[in-house]
Simulated scan of single mutants.
Amino acid sequence: MLKHLFLNRLLWAVTGLLALSAAGTGVLRPGIYDAVVSSELIPGAYSQDLLSVAAGLGLLYLSYAARPDRPKYQIVALGLLGYLFYAYGIYVIERTYNGLYLLYMAVFALSFWAMVTAGSTLDPALRTVSLPRAMRIASASGAVLQPLIFYPLWIVMLLPLMRTGEQIDSLYSIFILDLCFIMPGFLMLSFLTYRNHRTGLLLLPALYVLGFTLIFSLAVGELVKPLFGTVPSQAALLPALALSGLFLVLLILHLAQLRTERPAPESPTAAPSPYPRFTPNRPSS
């Protein structure tokens, strides 16, 4: 799937190691957010760090285990990179100026450039890619769900701000990342998958990895609220569990039915000689 796999694996390993360092510090010392994150958002930061620890460990493993004949490992790695780009994009854009801010910027930048490197090293001639038609339609339809939910939701929230000119103090990064990057990605890869294009078939499950980790972190954020003296909200927990579960099911089914085959090498044939073949006369008996 990817050419120059060593370079890609190296970027995954470095990104995963830095993310593990940043997120592990946040999990062990959640007080680093006290001065830079409002108290009601600290459970969300804690849950995001928990998921980022898992993503960092996953990237470290995939940087070791990925091989040219394991394209599904590479797909999952791209999804984890997308999650780290989003998660640390929030910290960077929201100006989380604690002692780890430069590390947040490093993870944000490395995850972005690792995805750019992967996109530029996709080998279009390496494999033929196929997905059963029913699964292709189901996967493409599932990918449209997130834009259908979040485009109207975020735009409705933005319109009053646009009328009044009010500048909110937190979570404005979600509007930027979702409306400018994530939702267009879902729409484009959904269309390409529906059209049976190899890029959509290969990269849409990576977006499902991203979608699952992002939405599941919201569910975890509700579950860890008692650790910070607040009460979980069922109205927030259940939709997050349902949507993350949907993305996980689509991811598993898409990868299970995805077929990538290396084209059989053509047997070399000798070029025809421009001269007539000479066959000596056999002596008569």
Score class of each variant (00 low, 15 high):
residue 228 F to N: 03
residue 28 L to G: 07
residue 14 V to Q: 04
residue 31 G to N: 06
residue 184 P to V: 13
residue 13 A to G: 15
residue 81 L to A: 09
residue 1 M to F: 05
residue 152 P to C: 10
residue 221 G to C: 04
residue 34 D to V: 04
residue 213 T to L: 14
residue 109 A to D: 04
residue 169 D to E: 12
residue 6 F to S: 03
residue 163 R to K: 14
residue 167 Q to C: 02
residue 272 P to G: 06
residue 59 L to N: 08
residue 5 L to F: 03
residue 205 P to E: 01
residue 56 G to W: 11
residue 73 Y to R: 12
residue 250 L to N: 05
residue 24 G to T: 09
residue 274 P to W: 06
residue 133 R to Q: 11
residue 3 K to Q: 05
residue 95 R to P: 00
residue 258 L to W: 04
residue 250 L to T: 09
residue 130 S to P: 01
residue 16 G to E: 14
residue 122 L to T: 05
residue 30 P to V: 08
residue 62 L to Q: 08
residue 221 G to L: 01
residue 267 S to H: 02
residue 45 A to E: 14
residue 177 L to M: 15
residue 38 S to D: 05
residue 149 I to N: 03
residue 177 L to E: 14
residue 254 H to A: 07
residue 284 S to W: 11
residue 96 T to F: 10
residue 249 V to G: 03
residue 144 V to L: 15
residue 55 A to T: 15
residue 145 L to M: 12
residue 121 T to L: 02
residue 152 P to F: 09
residue 91 Y to R: 15
residue 64 Y to V: 10
residue 75 I to A: 08
residue 93 I to Y: 15
residue 185 G to H: 04
residue 250 L to R: 04
residue 186 F to T: 01
residue 64 Y to T: 08
residue 122 L to P: 00
residue 194 Y to D: 01
residue 232 P to H: 01
residue 160 P to Q: 13
residue 12 W to H: 08
residue 5 L to H: 02
residue 58 G to L: 08
residue 37 V to H: 00
